[in-house]
Amino acid sequence: MKIIDEKKYYKMSELVEATNLSNFTISFYHKKGLLPNTLNTSKNMKYYPEITVTVLNMIKYFKENLNFSIDYIKELFDYYKIDFDDRSELILQSIQMLSIEIKNPILKKDINETTLNEAISLDLIDDKEIYFKTEIEVLKVYEELREYEVSSYLIEEYVKTSKKLALIERELSTKVLEKTGFLPEILVLDILNSFKPYIFNRHTIEEFKKEVQ
């Protein structure tokens, strides 16, 4: 590690050790525009800013756990205008990338206005001009629930419970941060992608079993 202008930088060999990715892979990601700019010294040595480790861990997670292609990851990075200067913002952006697939965009004007307005008022989705695959799926589920005359009250309670869970998730992350002074980006993604869905679905299954019995 090298300190330049009071900032930490890594050599390629140090990135390889920190991420278990090959020299070739890291260079490929850099050429694809997925990594922050390097700093070249007078000895023609390239140094990568400290946040590069976080970015590489994110890319690795998206590929191995979500089967995202490099081209799609690049598309996500471009859409969310990835912030290579702020690690906290970068982790927040990674959560957004995990939550919303930016595929099959549909304009707001092409969506049923009543359904959309109701979903926005219930805080199921945001009010914006373009919606993507995941958000359209949420709207479809909402429409179906309304067809079965599920009350808005139940849906509101579902959203309230989700918000409470979000607060607990943030507290879990805060406790790790307080303990270590460092928030592992992979832990945050694992909580959202594995820990929460498994526990939530596990108890949902238990509730359905009670009805069957």
Rank of each mutant, 00 (worst) to 15 (best):
T38P: 01
L39N: 09
N40F: 09
T41E: 07
S42T: 15
K43P: 02
K43L: 12
M45T: 15
T52Q: 01
V53T: 08
T54Y: 03
V55S: 01
L56V: 09
N57M: 13
M58V: 05
K60W: 03
K60N: 14
Y61I: 04
Y61C: 05
F62V: 04
N67A: 12
D71Q: 13
I73F: 11
K74Y: 13
K74R: 15
K74C: 04
E75G: 09
L76I: 13
F77Y: 11
D78Y: 08
D78H: 10
Y79M: 09
Y80W: 08
F84N: 07
D86S: 11
I95V: 13
M97G: 15
S99Y: 12
N104D: 10
N104W: 00
I106W: 02
L107R: 12
K108H: 13
I111S: 07
N112K: 08
L116G: 01
A119K: 02
I120H: 01
S121R: 07
S121C: 01
L122C: 02
L124R: 02
D127K: 12
E129G: 01
Y131M: 06
F132D: 04
F132E: 04
E135F: 01
E135V: 02
I136A: 08
I136F: 02
E137M: 09
V138D: 01
L139I: 05
Y142P: 01
E143H: 01
E144L: 09
L145I: 06
E149M: 07
V150G: 09
S151N: 14
S151W: 10
E156S: 14
E156Q: 14
T161W: 05
I168G: 02
I168S: 05
E169M: 11
E171V: 00
L172F: 03
S173C: 13
S173H: 07
T174Q: 11
V176T: 09
E178D: 14
K179C: 11
G181Q: 10
F182P: 00
L183F: 10
E185K: 08
